[in-house]
């Protein structure tokens, strides 16, 4: 199935929107499952999706622990003396955060099926200001860079002789916390350099730029978009009633 980039964008927005709206593990798991199913319809193999999400795992583990510890509530599952460490409330919050990020990251995989050029073209044809379209495309470009960066760092850390798998979790958390900002900042620097080198090669969107090619929405695109939008709106309406 060859869909217009804009149709895929609508799908990503719908899925991410639902992921941000829902706040129980069950609902989020469902949205995640739908996202994965969609990706499989677009010929992504399960193993490819797994490989794509794997580098995010350490970040998720970090967030899961943070959420567990800092959003208490419900029954206490694990305590260090009088201090509750893991509660049902905290655990469910943590699982929600992780599922939400996985869903958004997985949905964004759809963006890898078309070029950033097509993406900007699609948005500009929808009268989105070109600066905004360009910025969004850079942000999307950032995601895979960030993922590759995380897996590079995990490798580099181990090659310095640190046995990541055997580090006790408390120290591992301290390590991740120490590396978190340098890695995020470093990735931003690199993504920025990437954007600069793209512009240097003449890739730029000008206000009165003319386009050789036009994207056309086909019947299938409109049908898929409608189904996505209508079902999302219905789910949102249901959520608030």
């Amino acid at each position: 199935m060859k869909l217009d980039p804009r149709t895929k964008m609508v799908m990503v927005v719908c899925l991410s929107g639902l992921a941000l709206l829902y706040n129980t593990p069950g609902q989020l798991l469902l949205v995640f499952a739908v996202t994965v199913a969609l990706l499989m319809i677009f010929h992504f193999e399960l193993s490819v999706i797994g490989d794509y999400l794997k580098p995010f795992l350490s970040l998720m583990l970090f967030l899961l622990v943070i959420q567990c510890v800092f959003s208490p509530g419900g029954e206490v599952l694990l305590a260090a003396g009088p201090v509750p460490l893991i509660t049902t409330g905290g655990l469910s919050m943590g699982v929600c955060v992780v599922l939400r990020i996985m869903t958004v990251a997985a949905a964004a995989m759809l963006f890898t099926t078309f070029s950033s050029r097509d993406f900007i073209l699609g948005l500009v044809q929808w009268k989105v200001p070109y600066e905004l379209a360009f910025m969004v495309s850079i942000a999307l470009r950032f995601l895979p860079v960030f993922r590759d960066e995380l897996s590079n760092v995990v490798t580099a850390v181990q090659l310095r002789g640190v046995e990541l798998k055997k580090v006790p979790w408390r120290e591992k958390m301290a390590l991740y916390r120490r590396l978190f900002f340098p890695v995020v900042y470093g990735t931003m620097l690199k993504a920025q350099q990437l954007a600069v080198s793209m512009e240097a090669r003449g890739f730029r969107v000008y206000p009165r730029r003319t386009y050789l090619r036009r994207l056309n929405l086909l019947g299938a695109d409109i049908a898929v978009m409608l189904v996505c939008l209508v079902s999302t709106i219905m789910l949102i309406a249901l959520h608030f009633t």
Binding site: N152, Q158, P182, G186
Partner: peptide, 24 residues
């Protein structure tokens, strides 16, 4: 061997230094 065990025996400097600098 695990990567950590290899790293303690063999020091590796990548062609691109950017991929191996990760501290603050």
């Amino acid at each position: 061997y695990s990567l950590g065990e290899i790293g303690r025996r063999v020091g590796y400097v990548f062609q691109n230094p950017d991929v191996q600098l990760f501290c603050g």
